[in-house]
């Protein structure tokens, strides 16, 4: 578990450093995600199959973090309390904009993805599927 955390935090740090030195418009953790994907894929193609390319402690730590990711958004979400002034003044446009854009964004992304990949004939999967692979 500590080794896995060292990898995750370490790559976040590398991402942060790259962002500042190369002036990338992306946050450090996202650059870290790209780096870790590349590392794992390189490890996978170097010999081990994709499943074995991920060290078990890393798999465990990643699954634990992803399964509880909701909790991590609570502190930033509570920040809405500091914006009550604007919310009271413009609650209708804010609420309507939020609902419309989120629902439309979901529907358009989901529908296009679903139909394009069906036309492309890639292996389709029905919804009832075993949990995390």
């Amino acid at each position: 578990m500590p080794s896995a955390f060292a990898i995750l935090v370490g790559l976040q740090l590398v991402g942060e450093v790259l962002r500042q030195t190369l002036h990338l418009p992306l946050p450090g953790p996202l650059i870290g995600m790209v780096l870790l994907t590349v590392l794992l894929v390189a490890r996978g193609s170097a010999g081990a199959a994709a499943q074995r390319a991920v060290p078990p402690p890393l798999l465990k730590a990643a699954n634990a973090l992803i399964a509880n990711m909701g909790l991590l958004f609570v502190p930033a979400g509570v920040g809405i309390i500091a914006e009550l002034g604007v919310l009271q003044q413009e609650w209708l446009p804010i609420l309507a904009g939020l609902l419309v854009s989120t629902v439309l964004g979901l529907a358009v992304t989901g529908l296009v993805m679903h139909h394009v990949s069906r036309v492309a004939g890639a292996g389709r999967r029905a919804l009832p599927e075993a949990a995390a692979e």
Binding site: Q12, G32, M33, L59, A62
Partner: peptide
């Protein structure tokens, strides 16, 4: 931060 990096898995 680490959770975002973990999405690489």
């Amino acid at each position: 931060g680490p959770a975002t990096v973990a999405l690489a898995v």
